[in-house]
Every structure is written in C-alpha cells, then in structure tokens.
Design a protein around this nucleic acid. Structure first.
Lengths: 213, 213, 213, 213
DNA sequence: CATGAATGAGTATTCATTCAT
DNA sequence: GATGAATGAATACTCATTCAT
C-alpha cells in the first residue's frame, strides 16, 4: 500500500511537474511568437508547434488564444511589478524628494525589462475580454503609489491623494512608455538623466513637496 | 459646344458625387462597425454590407481593411485637431497661466468628440503598418504646443522646449485619455474642474510659469 | 442632301477610323499585358486601362477576354505565316534539297518574330473554346507544306503525302519551338547552322529526296 | 515497454495511413476534376469536395492548387516513365533498327495511359512556377535516350549525341502527342502501324543506322 | 457611342477548435 | 493525458460583366 501510494504520489508529482513544464513552455512560446510574428500571426497551432507540444495538449491547459496571451501579460506584469516594488522599498528609505526620483527611474527601468514584448503588448494586443490585463499593472502601481503618498502626507501640499496618485502614476507611466516606444534616443546616456530629472521635478512640484522631508 | 461641355461636366460631377458618396458611406460604415462590433469583427464584407455597397465597390476605393480604418482614424484625428486648434487660438489671447488651463480643458473636450470610437481606436486598433496614424495626432499636437511654448519662452523657466513639449503633451494626453477610458466619473461636474485645475497646476509648475505673464 | 450625306459618310468614316484605332489599341494592349504580366493576370479591366480605353468600350468591341486573346493569337499567326509564305516562295525556286533547308531556317526565324509573346501563348494560354487558334497556324502551315510536297512528288520516295506532311511539319515545328523555349543557346551562331543542317537532313532522308532534283 | 512501443507505432501507422489516404484522395480528385472540368474550373474548394475531404485538410497537405496539380503531373509522369523504361529495356535486347521501332511504339502507347488527363495537362496547364514539371518527363526521356544512343554509338553515323537525342526525342514526342490530340483516327488499326513505321524510318535514317547492328 | 461606377459570384486561404485513436 | 488529423466557418480579395449617365 505504502509503496503504491508513494508511486502514485511520485507519479502525480511527476505528472504535475510535466504539466508545469508544458504550461511554461506554452507561455514562453506565446511570448516568443508574439514578439517574432506579432499578435495577429500568433495562432494556437503555431504556438503549440513552437512550444514543442501538440495542439491537443495546448487546449488541455488553456481554453484558447486569449488565455495564453493573458498568461503572458500576467507574467510580464509580474516582472514589472518586481522592479516597481523593489524601487518602492528603496524609495521608502529616502526623503520624498529623492524617493520620487527613484520611482521615476524605476519606471523607465521597468519598461526595459522586455521592451519588444512590452511593445507588442501595448501596440497590438486588443484590450478586450480577458486581455484587458494590460491595465492591471496600472492599477497595482496606482495602489502602491497611493500608499506611498499616504506615508508622506505630512510633506505634501496636495490633499486629494487619490486624484494625486492617479495624476502622478498616469503621467510617469505615459512619459516612460512614450519615451521607450517613440523616443528611444531619449533613454540613452545623459538624455536619460535629464528625462528622469525633469519628470521628477514636475511630479515633486505638483505634489508640493516640502524641502527637507 | 457649351452644352456638350456642360453635360460632360455634369456627368463627371454626377460620377464624382456618386464616388464621394460611396467613399463617405464606407468610412462611416467602418466607424459604425468599429464601435458596434470591435476591430476584429470588422470584416470588409460586413463593412460593405453596412455601407449598402457591394464588396467590389469597397475595393474600388480602398485597398483593404487597413486603409478603411486608416481613413476613419484620419477623419477622427482631423476632428480632434479642430478642437485643439480652436483652443490654441483662444489660449494665444490669454496669459500663459490661463492659456494652459484652456488647453487642458480642450484636451478633455476633444476626447469627448466621439468617445466610443476613440476608445476602439485606442484599445483595439493595432498600431502597425498604415494604422500607426493614431500617433499622428500626437505629433501634430506636439508641434502646435512647442510653438506655443516658443511664443512664451520669456515667461518660462524651462530651457529645452522640445523636451518640455514632449513632457507636457504626453502627460496631458495620457491624463485626459485615461480619465475618459478608466475614470469616466472623474469627468462629470465638479470633479472635472478639479482635474483640469490640478493638471494645469502641474504643467504650470513644471514649466516654471512666472506670474503675471 | 448631298452635303448631309457627305457629312454622314465622313462621320462614319471618322467613326470607323476611331473604331479601328480602338480595336488596335486593345489588341496591342492585350499582347503587351500578356507578355508583361502573363495570361492569368491579364484582366479585362487592366487591358482597357493599358489601352487607354474605358472598360465599357472594350466590351463594345470584344465579347470578353477570350476574344481579345484570340485576336492577339490571330495577329501573331498572321505574322508567322508571313514569314513562312515568304520562305515558301523562296523554296519554290530551288531544288527540293535546298528548299527544305530554307523552310527549316524559316521556321526558326518565324519563332523569333515575337518570342516573348510566342512563349506566353504557348505556355500559358489554355487551348479551349475560341482560344484553340494557336493550332490554326499549324493547320495552315501543314496545307502549304503539303502543296509543296505535291509539287515535288516526282523527287520523293514517300507516297502518302498527307502523312508525310504531318510528320515533317510537326517535327520541324516541335524542334524549332523546343529549341526556342528550352534551348535558346542552340539558336545562336554556329550551333544554329548545325540545328538547321541536322533537321534538314532528317527531313530529306525521311522524304527520300533524290539528289539533283 | 514493447507493447507500449507497438501501440505508439500502431497509432502512428494508423495516423500515417489516414494521412496517406487523404493525400491520395486529393490527388485523385484533382486529376478527376482536371479531366472533367478543366484546369480553370478546378478550384481548391471543388477539389476538396470531390475528394470528400474538408478544405482545411487540403491545405494541411498541399500549399495550394499549384502543388496539387504538380502532384498529379508527377504521378502522371511517373506512369509514363514506367512505360518508357519498360520499352527501353526491351529495345536494349534488340538490334538498334528494331529497338527504335520499340521506342516509337512505346511513345504512342505511353500517350494512351490516360489520354484525357494528358490532354488537359498539355493544353490547359500553364507551365509556370511549380507546374513546369510537365517538361520534366521530356528531360528524363531525353537522358534515357541519350544513354541508349551512347550504347549504340558504333552503329550510328551521327556524332553529336546530345543534339541527336534532342532531335529524336522531341520529334517522336511531338508526333505521338500531335497524333493523339489532333489525329486520333491515325492511331487506330493499320494507320497506327504506318505511323510507327514512318516515324521509325525517319529516326533511323537521321541517325544513319547501319544495317545488321 | 463612350464612360466608369457598381456588382457579386467565386477563389484561395487561415485558424480556432474538436475528437477518435 | 497526449496526439495530430480533420474540420468548416470566416475572411480578404479579384474580375468579368452590366448599365445608368
């Protein structure tokens, strides 16, 4: 009995491990094809082939193309949040004037995680049905930033923190995104410093950051 | 002879009128379907049907779906620019502190021109090939705004006007867009005033607008 | 009355001249497109455009694409026959041994009249309906050659002149055609002489040409 | 393990058998439609229907109409070569005077393999892209015949065997083809013997076959 | 007669999805 | 669970032809 159980467990584990591997391969293949061929040419058949998995198995784990892309988005969001969270905890240890600089720099850095994928996701992926997940990152970042403002409320002139967070996060996100997509030259060398500086200055000015806090 | 010529002209005009009508019907039908069914379900056949025109005629005037959507985008951009230009000339007559408020308000107003279409264009239309025209509006607005800053250079603390224009236009665009799409409640009544006020304040603070100019 | 008639006549003539010009332009345009784009891509609309004529006018003069191509074939056949007839009358003045050489040489020359068109007609034009006209050339040449043999019956060993003509014309035609299409190198310089010589020798040997006739 | 493997193999075989059956059905259906409806009316949809296979399956195995027709041509060529090769080995055992008769007779026989298909392939199939395979048969036959001449070089008066092979094969091919297509009456009963005799005589005379070899 | 806008049946092709093995 | 052959609705696009002007 014990042996049997063990075997079963082992088998299950093996099976689960295999499952995870298959799922992983599929998500990675989707990302690769998305980047290489674009959203429209990313068909389930092609993805399965790229993953080295049969089309039947693909449908075993994902209900369709949408779910596959959603998984890619989720993973990408997770990677981005990693960077953001890291920056957040760094910023928490600094006075707010410095902290905002950290966060802006982090936003740019985050967009550099997987720029090609980011671009495809931003430019070609329709925000419909399951796929609106692209916006999820925004919401998470928003919450984090709102909390950050809350922690520094005393040092700020603004009162409506919700609105302030919306304005800051949206602006920072848009600036870094737009720079990455349409002005890559602005992100190299000294120009990058200036972008960070200017953006930070704008945000700080808007928030009415009091010196020495 | 004169009669003959007239007839010829009349014929031509009739023909041209018919053509224009067909083209117009197609563009309008495209916009309608885009809004009603979304980008992916907007097939050339469906568009032709909606326009009350044969599929053959569609291809007489447009090389494909892309061109159709591009025409819709172009028309939409044109409508937006109308609003922006109007606001620009208004702002030109005011001190910069007030002028920026005008422009921000105009940006929100512009997004209200045809919100449903705007949304589809922003969320579902891939920015590939001919379709990157969505970005064209941005570029035009950028230029206009840069000129505006140029005219008020003396009243500003910033020196790199290109970078400043990029930062301002991108931020304003993103804030109004994001508000329209994800926070419609923020655009009604008193909340709208606050959004305009806050945004304007941020931009003015960033530009280092000197009072009384 | 007279004046009237004259005018009418003149008009008619003018009209007829215009008609002929239109027809000519259409046939030439068809040939040009056939060569440039191939049979399949030669659409009536394209032909009309190339001819600088409206599609409506095209259908005034030709019932469809088939008729257009048939006209091109006919004209081409006519050009070929010109060469063949010329050679025939030359050959008639020579003893048969020499005459056959003339005819073979003429066959090659004929294929050089408009090789590109010839190729398209031979390789891409289906021999169906009105279009079987490609074979018409063969039949005409056959008849001419049969008469030629008849005139030289006394100098020949063969008795069934119909069969002999079929064998000779088919062979000559095939050899020159095949050379033009698949062995163009065989038609330049000294190789060409050899092809003519060998072919003539074969035909003469087959016919049992008696020397000195 | 063995059982497992067997099962796997069996599965594969079953799958492969199904595939082969589908492919076969498609090729046969193409041939049938080609004959019944002609090249132009042979659309992929019609072929799939005739084959009792979905249009999707058609495209799983063939990239398009061209490939389908190419497969038919290939199969037909193969069938023809079968006959030719058979005749060749027969001819090899005979003196060349008799051998040539064998080969000519075989050429006619070969054209009788599937005359209707042969006709469509010859008359309606454009020789473009993948489809030039019609000419492949010619090239193969040419090589075979050249080798044959080589083996009998001593018994021949001609020296340029390449040119001689070209002349012989082209002539024989054209004569039998033309007879089948345009003079079917010439291929029945006694007339056929005469055609073979005359053609053989022409070829033998051309080659300068020495008696008793 | 000339024009060219309009037509719409027809064709090739893709792709998400199912299901027997 | 895995496989991959099969499916067929859907789509983009062409082209011969008509007919109102």
């Amino acid at each position: 009995m014990l042996v049997q159980k063990r075997t079963t467990r082992a088998r299950k584990k093996a099976a689960q491990a295999r499952s995870r591997a298959t799922v992983g391969a599929l998500v990675e293949a989707t990302a690769r094809i998305l980047v290489r061929e674009g959203f429209d040419r990313a068909s389930t058949n092609r993805i399965a082939e790229e993953a080295g998995v049969s089309i039947g198995s693909l449908y075993q784990y994902f209900p369709g193309k949408e779910a596959l892309v959603a998984a890619v988005i989720e993973r990408h969001n997770h990677d981005l949040m990693q960077v953001v969270r890291q920056a957040m905890s760094e910023a928490a240890r600094e006075p707010i004037g410095v902290g905002i600089g950290c966060l802006v720099a982090a936003a740019i850095e985050a967009h550099g995680v997987h720029p090609a994928l980011h671009r495809v996701l931003a430019e070609q992926t329709p925000r419909t049905g399951e796929l609106e997940g692209v916006e999820l990152f925004h919401r998470e970042a928003l919450e984090l930033f709102r909390d950050y403002l809350e922690d520094h409320r005393a040092a700020l002139a603004v009162t409506d923190l919700d609105l302030a967070a919306f304005i800051c996060v949206t602006s920072i996100e848009a600036l870094t995104h737009s720079a990455v997509i349409h002005r890559p030259e602005i992100l190299a060398g000294e120009a990058r410093q200036r972008l960070v500086a200017e953006t930070s200055r704008m945000i700080a000015a808007y928030l009415g950051v009091r010196d020495g806090s």
